[in-house]
Structure formats: structure tokens, C-alpha cells
Design a protein around this nucleic acid. Sequence first.
RNA 1: GCCGUUGUAGCUCAGGGGUAGAGCACUUCCUUGGUAAGGAAGAGGCCAAGGGUUCAAAUCCCUUCAAUGGCUCCA
Length: 645
Amino acid sequence: MPEINITLPDGSVRQYPRGTSAMQVAQSISEGLARVIIAAKVNGQVVETTRPITEDATLTLLKWDDKEGKSTFWHSSAHLLAEALESLYPGVKFGIGPAIENGFYYDIDLGNHKFSSDDFAKLENKMLELAKQENPFIREEISKADAISYFTEKGDELKLELLQDLKDGEITFYKQGNFTDLCRGPHLPHTGHIKAVKILNIAGAYWRGDEKNKQLTRIYGITFPKKSELDAHMQMLEEAKKRDHRTLGRELEIFAFDDDVGPGLPLWLPKGAAIIEILEEFAKKTEKEAGYVRVKSPHIAKESMYIKSGHLPYYQDSMFPPMEMDGTKYYLKAMNCPHHHKIFAATPKSYRDLPLRLAEYGTVYRYEQTGELFGLMRVRSMQMNDAHIYCTKAQFEEEFRAVNDMYLKYFRVFGIDKYMMRFSKHDPRKLGQKYINSPELWIETENMVRNVLIKANIPYVEVEDEAAFYGPKIDIQLWSAIGREFTIATNQVDFAQAERFDLSYINEKSERERPLILHRAPLGTHERFIGFLLEHYAGKFPLWLNPEQVIILPISEKYQEYSEKVLNVLKKHDIRALIDDRSEKTGKKIRDAELKRLPLMLILGEKEQADNTVTVRKQGGEDLGSMPIEAFTAYVKAEVEKQMN
RNA sequence: GCCGUUGUAGCUCAGGGGUAGAGCACUUCCUUGGUAAGGAAGAGGCCAAGGGUUCAAAUCCCUUCAAUGGCUCCA
């Protein structure tokens, strides 16, 4: 029998008969290995362990710990879920059932059956029962005609619809126990690997993601090869909930919502407002250094401006309905751009005025759909770190890069190391509908943006059909510590509105010329950014940003007077401090200060009073010992300075 | 907007057809205590709102509002 060479990840090469499977290779190494492998990567392609290998190949045996291993495990679990559902609810129809980042789901049409969270346990038990049977996943290549007749007989029109898009010759079925599914695989060797099952939740989901289609029932679940791993995962979810910005925002008294104020309209409590002011001060300083000038604009504008800007036909549904006065409609502003364009137009401009960078922490209102509201992440009123840069084509690249540099500075200050720039482009098929109909300008500006990104060596991904209607944009994706993804900031090119507002400047040859416009908001909105920071820092705002930097903890009421003296010194140095003067023990006061995530605690008693010193405890327990008050204020200032640069 | 779930004290939650409960927080008193919870007492709720069923509704049903998990959307 002809032999093939199998190269393993450590570089070793072994000979096997042609048609050997990954499982057989694993068995030849050790039985223990064979028991835990989930799938195999053959020449870069993930396949099931039973697939015969017919040519020389590099082979990686995938276990639970491998990303692809988990994905295979969960995809197979989706099939197990389907098998359990079919056994409990005969006649149920199946859409798609993929693995996701944490678990899997299956979209199903239950027909007349009812399924609710009360049935989760029943479903979990059924899945475990089927898993125990250790049914192998069997792959079968099938002709399109046979596949169609199988699902026609079964009456599953969802699968039939999926089949329409598949080519004859590349269709496979996977079968385990009594369940057969259309699937390209790969799958586990058998269902017995699945030892722990949790149905997480149930949701409606439009068939193929289109809201015009029928809504199916989506069942989310997660499975593990060990019960202990499931327990650990559930515990992790609990921990994540404690880091949720909504939980922290309430605990730390940062923001609140109120039914009478309205959904999506956050109230900033004193500490939240303090954070906002610190952020603004920081942003304003940074922008001033970068040559921005500040402007102010009203919160409403006449309908005519939004018709001129072109926003109305595209975004009317996302704006609050107009108010009418003296026969004229006024809208709450949903974006600052048109106002800034009007500010540009208010005085004549020469090329000597460019680049002109107009900045404003503008408040805007957007009528987000009720179901889209989410804590501080999706709200209806927001304050945006907005600015518009008007420049010549020749200046564009430099300006765009300067904006990117500002982003990178912010990331450093806030300790953000996981980010991705998403370069959003137009979709040529939607010109004139979703996008301004200027095909050449789209290509030209998209190339300019790409060039900057490449030259600056910034990691990015390109996505189609995500641009703003007036030009391409870059969105900055961040991930909070609990893994939630945020689109925080945006950086957009605008080649359309200068035309619409008839904005121009006089160039060196005394000719009128249109400026290019850059929209940018590195810190996004206060709402979303502070929501992100809450999760990012787990509520532990760093010293420079914390609304309460220092708490003074007198050991007893006897040291109240000395505490006030220290407080006054701190205040003179613009250090944000307060005294915990309750008649509680020091241990209690420290505990409460820790729960409030205060960065520095000053413990003051007899010794400190006598020596005119303070004893410093850092958040988390680190003891900095005693020092004179002046040494402490110098320490705070140095820390703040260090953190902000 | 759509599908599912949930609304009980400031927070976290228990209870459940016969006019409300715990812990924490809060107030007062005692205590004056040196690095993550000292003690006692007190105050707090039309059980989201509206309607219905019932002798009786916080509890069952309907509607609305809000939150929440998703879907769709996100200038």
C-alpha cells in the first residue's frame, strides 16, 4: 500500500498508509490522545477525525483547548440540540445552527409547539441523554437531488431554501443517532464528548437576518467536556455581570435613568458629571494643542438645514419628530455637522485659514428604536467629542494622520491595548440610495484613506457597505475587559456636504475651491465612552480621572479637626478629596472606600496629628506609609501628571 | 420595530387569591475603635400603571409603560 507523509506541528514526519484518518494517527501516538481529540486540521482545513487523508499533509490534532476544537465541539452540540428538539417536538423545522464565540445556537421554526424557559431543563436532560449514547457523527456526500428529496419529504422548507444556494457535488449530510442535517461539518467523533449542557436563553431571530423574513426561534446554549468547566463558565458570567457598566454605574452613583425623564435619556449624577468635566478638560487641552478652535451651536435647527445637509431623507426615522412653530418645523439636532458647516460659512475663508478645525462637545438627540437602547451604550441623548476639519486636498493626508495620532495618544492614556480600526466603505450597488451618488469621489477618497492607514502602519480591516452616506469612515472598535465590543470613535471623510452647503475658500490663485471635510470624534460620546471606561477599569477610575481621588479616614472623632485641616490643604492643591466622618471603625471605613473604588485613603490618628503627617493606603491594600502632607500632595500631582501623559 | 423574559423598600432578592418580608444602604443612640463589615433601635413599599375576573387581587387574565436577552438597526 502506498504511504503518505504526515507532518506534525513539532516538525516530525511520520509515514502512514494512504487513507489513514487523523484518529488513527492519534491512536498511533497514544490512546489518551485519541480519546480527547475533537477534530483535525489537515493542510490548514478543519475536518472530522475520521476523514481519510489521501495525500501528504501537515496535521494538527485539535483538542478542546484549541479555538477550532471548541468551535467544532459547539457546532456538534448544535446538532445534538437539534436532535433533542426533534425528539421532543416532532415536526420542528431547522434553519441554521452555528457555533459562536461562547457556545452555539440553532434557529428553528417550532410550528404549533410552545417552548419557553420552563422547558430548558427538559431540553438539557434530553441532550445529555442523547449524548450518553455516544452516537458517532457520520458524514455522507449526497447529490443535490437526493438532498432536496430528503428535505421535501421531511417538509423542512428552511433547509430547502439553504440547499438552493449550494452546488451539486459539494453537499454533505451529517447524521448522528436519529438525526440528519445538511451541514459541511466538521464534527466530533461522537456525541459522548459532550458532558455538560446549559441552555442559556431563547430569542427571536429573523430568518437569514432580514427583518422582512419570518421570525424564527433562536435557542442559545453552551456545552463542555466536563461539568466543572460549565460551572466555571457560569461563574465567569456572574463576574462579568458585576463588571457590567450598568451595575457599576448604579453602585458607584455615576448615572441613572428615570421613567419620567424617558428611556435612553441618562441623568448624570454628581460623580458622573465630575468625570465628564475631567474628560472634557483633557480633550479640550489636547485639541487646543493640536490647533483646534472651539465653537458652540444651538440644540435645534430648522428643517431646511437638514434638507440642505441631506440628512433628512436618510435619517429622518432616527431623529426625534419635529416641533412646529409659526409654520416652520424645527428638529432637535441629531448631528453637529451642519451647524459647524454654517459656522465655516459665516465668514469668508482663504486658503490661509485652512486647515480650520472646529471643535465642540455637542449634545445631540437620536431617536433610537426602543429595542436598541442599552445602558449608556445606546442612548437617545448624547454629548459628542465632535470636531470638523476643513482642509485642502493637499492637507488631507497630514490632517487625517494627525487625527489618528490623537486616537493613539488617547489609547495610551486610557490604557486601551485591544482595538481595531474598521475602514468602512460604500457599496457601489447602493449609490443614490444609501450613499451619495458620486462614484468617482467614493473611489478617490477611499484610496486616500487607505493610503494613510497603510503609511501609518495602523492595523485595520476593510468592510463594504458600512460607510456614512457622505463618505468613507473609520470606526474604532474597542473591547472592554468583559469582552463586550464597542464602536467608540469615528473618523469620517466628507466630500458631499461642502458642495451641499456651498462651502468654499479662496485659493492662492484667487479662485474659489471646495474644502474637504473630516469628521472626527476620538472619544465618541460621553455616554458610550464612560460606559466603556466603567467596564474597562471595573469601576476603578485612575487617579487623574476619579471624581474622588482621596478619602480621609479619621480613626475617631477626636481627629476631625486635623482631618479638616488636611482636607483644606488638599483642596488648595486642587485634589478632589472628602472625609468619612461617620462614627465607624477604621476597618469599616476602609472597606467602604474600597467598594467605592477610591484610589487613595488617608488614615489619620494620634500619630499623624502629632507629626503633621498622613498615612497613605492605596486602593487594593498597598501601604505607602506616613509622609508629610506636602509630600503627599506632591505625590498625587506627580501621579496625575504621569497618568495623563 | 420584532421574538422571549422580568417589574415587590434606595440596592440585591424571598413570598404569593384573605390588605407585605430579609440582608445591605439610610436615620438616631451607644461605642472612640489603626488597614476590607462593632452593637442596638427606628424609618422606608397603592407590590410599574390602567382595566378585568372574584365576596376578596401584589398574587389570575388583558392592555400599556419600562427594563432585560437576542434579532433588525446604529449618522
